[in-house]
């Protein structure tokens, strides 16, 4: 066992250099002003945090949250039934369906988003279809709806897979027992399947919401830059404005928000678990 521990050292060093140090640097930049190339000259300042509170930036943060929440919600509403269908299909079909879900995930995020651009753009596939059907053209892209659609498409598999995993593990005997005790299929769903699948729902929400709230580029591509998200703002500060202090404080704010939402989700999950173990109730 000891030798195994030694094997973990390089990884720990790696973690320290490439994760912990950058985060500490970001924290440092967020609380200072001055030339970032000269660490000795940095002065303490809350200036960049104050800037975050300016209405235009607050609006971006709120927008990101709303969009991330909406895409998580839609992913849940779409993903749950799909996960259910996959879990219930017979083994041969199930393998195929899972492939359809997983293969797009192997493609690059940008590539997938470009594919959506060619569907949603003013002269894209969707509008040609509308033309063919003699219907009025849709002006989705660029716009919030297109961003939302792109996000839902990109993150949907991350909602479906954990829910599917939990659903496929639910023992069929529980459903038969509920049936036996007089519950029709709908009541069996709400009283047995749904409560037993909460852990999958929680991890699905986490796996969609976190990348959704910090996503960037997608709003530029599908939203025409009209509704920048917090991820875009951070990228902009680092890459174009060169204001690493402001970029860092935005990053820290985003990180804190993510940590809070993760804490809430794990609390929900733990409550479910505790009820399962029943110790809390005794």
């Amino acid at each position: 066992m000891k030798r195994m521990k030694i094997l973990a050292y390089p990884y720990s060093v790696w973690m320290a250099i490439f994760i912990v140090v950058p985060i500490l640097l970001v924290l440092l930049y967020s609380l200072t002003e001055g030339d970032i190339r000269n660490l000795a000259e940095l002065r303490f300042s809350t200036q960049s945090y104050e800037r975050v509170l300016e209405p235009i930036y607050l609006k971006v943060i709120v927008n990101s949250f709303i969009l991330a929440t909406l895409s998580t919600l839609f992913c849940l509403l779409l993903g749950y039934p799909v996960a259910m269908i996959v879990a219930r299909s017979n083994p041969k079909v199930r393998g195929m369906l899972l492939m359809f879900l997983i293969v797009p995930m192997w493609m690059n995020f940008l590539l997938r988003t470009y594919a959506w651009m060619s569907i949603l753009s003013p002269n894209g596939f969707l509008n040609r279809l509308m033309d063919l059907l003699g219907l009025p053209r849709l002006e989705i892209m660029p716009g919030k709806t297109a961003v939302l659609l792109g996000m839902i498409y990109n993150f949907l598999p991350f909602m479906i897979l954990p829910i599917y995993t939990v659903l496929s593990k639910i023992d069929k005997q529980f459903l038969e027992a509920a049936n036996d005790l007089g519950a029709n299929n709908m009541r069996t769903f709400f009283k047995i399947i749904l409560p037993l699948s909460i852990p999958g729902v929680v991890s699905g929400i986490t796996m969609v919401f976190l990348p959704a709230v910090s996503t960037f580029v997608i709003s530029g591509l599908l939203g025409g830059g009209k509704t920048p998200l917090i991820g875009d703002l951070i990228e902009h500060q680092f890459m174009w404005e060169g204001n690493w202090h402001f970029g860092s404080s935005l990053s820290i704010i985003l990180m804190v928000m993510i940590l809070i939402s993760m804490a809430i989700m794990s609390r929900i999950d733990r409550n479910g678990q505790q009820e399962k173990n029943g110790q809390s109730k005794v």
Binding site: Q173, F174, E176, D180, L181, G182, N184, L196, E275, K276
Partner: peptide, 18 residues
């Protein structure tokens, strides 16, 4: 089954875990 006036004690009990 949910309309039958019959109840079952299952081989593996199938008690609801939640």
């Amino acid at each position: 089954p949910y309309k039958r006036n019959i109840n079952t004690v299952f081989q593996r009990y199938a008690l609801f875990p939640h």
